[in-house]
């Protein structure tokens, strides 16, 4: 703090009132410059993003249509649409979240409502942080070793979903914990005072009043599960699998599946002679799915925040 004083007011105050106007102007100029510099830094990462997305959409325009979504890839993936991968991605999202969401929410309930401060809780929190930082390719190795080989699930929708579930788990725990912590302590005490048990308090007061935060956290993981490629590459997703066109349930739990993310990787790097608009179209479908889900979560969050109950 003392350094501020000495730098900003080197000549003592009061004495040089009038001479300061030039200094003030310089200050203003410097201030504006800093502001624009930082705004530039912010813009430099957001503007290219918007340009790039616009470019992707522009390149994909010739192929984008309802048919592109509902058709299967054909002719060695050099023609047709993205139906089979799209449905596969939906499978992975639903199953992985059906596994991760309950575990993640209950884990957060434990951490926020039951756990006492101490070394044990500290270790759990460290584990959550580290789990969130495990590279996705290491998740893939784990999924291969644990689910595909050890548990004998083989390369399957289930093994891939389990792998994705563990990857999304720590983030669900963190966002749920934050949502639970936003419920005031006094509500819990009021419930305990009238003889409600811990679980009754959680079930009837804490969870219903943090559900918006919990849901937005989970929805954000939908886009994560949709976008990841590495963890499913060796655990269940395949380059190509023939399915009936328009079939909503082409995959069983132990079948292998296609996935949008994997499909984009495949047709843009592994298959020669694919017409360029096909990967652009696939990228746009994947991007649209992910961004749509995110925007839904943001809208939900804003809406629910506007009707808070206390």
């Amino acid at each position: 703090m003392s350094s501020v004083e000495s730098k900003s007011n080197p000549k003592g105050s009061g004495v040089r009132r009038f001479a300061e106007s030039a200094g003030i102007r310089r200050k203003f100029r410097q201030e504006a410059m800093v502001k624009w510099l930082l705004a530039g830094a912010t813009g430099m990462m957001l503007v290219p993003l918007i340009l790039i997305i616009a470019y992707l959409v522009f390149k994909a325009l010739p192929i984008l249509s309802v048919g592109f979504l509902l058709d299967n890839p054909v002719k060695g993936m050099r023609e047709g649409g993205v139906w089979a991968p799209f449905v596969g991605t939906m499978y992975l999202i639903v199953i992985s979240l059906a596994i991760a969401a309950p575990i993640g929410v209950l884990a957060a309930v434990y951490l926020n409502e039951y756990a006492r401060e101490g070394w044990f809780t500290r270790i759990i929190n460290l584990a959550v942080i580290n789990l969130a930082g495990v590279p996705s390719i290491v998740h893939a190795l784990f999924g291969l070793g644990a689910f595909v080989l050890f548990a004998g699930l083989g390369r399957s929708v289930l093994a891939a979903s389990l792998t994705l579930a563990i990857m999304t788990l720590p983030v669900i725990i963190a966002s749920t914990k934050e949502a639970l912590a936003s419920v005031p302590m006094s509500f819990r005490q009021a419930c305990w005072n009238v003889g409600a048990t811990r679980w009754q308090t959680i079930r009837h007061i804490v969870l219903p009043n943090s559900i918006s935060g919990i849901l937005t956290g989970i929805i954000l993981q939908v886009s994560r599960a949709a976008g990841e490629t590495a963890p499913i590459m060796f655990t269940g997703a395949v380059f190509f699998k023939k399915v009936q066109q328009g079939d909503m349930f082409p995959y069983g739990l132990l079948d292998q599946c296609m996935a949008l993310s994997m499909h984009l990787f495949t047709i843009s790097t592994q298959v020669p002679g694919v017409p360029m608009e096909l990967p652009y179209g696939t990228a746009v479908v994947l991007l649209a799915t992910v961004l749509l889900v995110n925007i839904c979560s943001i809208v939900l969050r804003v809406y629910l925040r506007s009707r808070k109950k206390w």
């Binding site: 009021a190 419930c191 009238v194």
Partner: peptide, 13 residues
């Protein structure tokens, strides 16, 4: 035992 705390607490119900 009925308990009334210093600050009023309406539950969000």
């Amino acid at each position: 035992i009925g308990m009334v705390s210093p600050l009023p607490v309406g539950l969000p119900l």
